[in-house]
Design a protein around this nucleic acid. Structure first.
Lengths: 155, 155
DNA sequence: AATCTCCTGGGCATTATGCATAGCGAGAGG
DNA sequence: CCTCTCGCTATGCATAATGCCCAGGAGATT
């Protein structure tokens, strides 16, 4: 799937003012309304735009501590561990990786003390051999996509 | 900031059908339109909802490879490194952490070969001493927030 | 030259929004 | 016990956006 310049501009506009409508977007971009509608439909059916989920800040609902945990898994226990971690609400994200660990997950907690509880819950499962945790202090680059979109759409 | 059950249900609804309008949401939730409007306003001004950014899939725009890199930084070079990484579009996210490394960043690339180029660009900077990279194979739990929202809203 | 695809520009019925108003019930403080 | 305040309900109305339609034109492909 390739992204042209209009697609890039549309994504950028949506990122900046997400509640914008199709009509307003077409005005800003200087194209016809139908064009914007068609591009949006295409971007969504191509899977470029997965959705417009509300971006909820965990800190604002009482979970200001973020951490990343690298997990080492017993051979053959991968599926069980996945299933286990899926049930823990504080696990926001889970990846299986190459390298020293086998999995990497993003955790949140109510406090540093609470993080211990979360980690105990995560690690308190038979298939997990070892976990090493890195607590996030700052987040100088929050999750972003626009620079990449610009690059992909030919700047 | 506390979240009650109605807030939780509203967030869940928005997560499932993001392009829903206030009127439709009020119908689904069985409350008055003004109530939904008021809750939404409050959630946004409290920072619980940061925005409704389009969720763009890097894989769909030509960057199917994701990796996490742990960076070790020379003392006192933190700001320079941050500034450097900000300029790299393939760096989607950057955290400073406690633990063995000093920073953790999420990268994407066009291929495994291209990942080498990205890493070279990331690491090719004076303040970075060492980098260890973990390539993502699977993503059993994609970034999610609803389970946490449910927990926070007393569910 | 004929076709295809994409964008344009318009029209039209339906629906949503922003804004305002008034009533009602529950809880807090006097 | 009384009263005040606050949040939810319910409704109305003018304005704006949406979904869907179609005909025409420009550029690229065959």
């Amino acid at each position: 799937m390739t992204i042209d310049h209009l697609d890039g501009a549309l994504l950028e506009l949506l990122a900046q003012e997400p509640r914008i409508g199709v009509l307003e977007a077409s005005r800003r971009l200087g194209v016809a309304r139908g064009t914007v509608q068609a591009r949006l439909d295409r971007l969504q059916s191509n899977g470029v735009i997965r959705g417009f989920g509300p971006d909820v800040d965990p800190a604002a609902i009482g979970y200001p501590v973020t951490a990343f945990a690298t997990l080492e898994i017993k051979q053959g226990q991968g599926n069980d561990v996945r299933a286990h971690l899926t049930t823990v609400p504080e696990v926001l994200e889970l990846h299986t990786t190459t390298g020293h660990g086998d999995m990497l997950c993003r955790l949140v907690a109510r406090s540093n003390a609470d993080l211990q509880r979360v980690i105990d819950r995560v690690v308190g499962f038979d298939g997990i051999v070892r976990a090493s945790t890195a607590i996030v202090m700052e987040n100088p680059v929050p999750l972003r996509i626009i620079p990449l979109v610009k690059q992909a759409s030919g700047d």
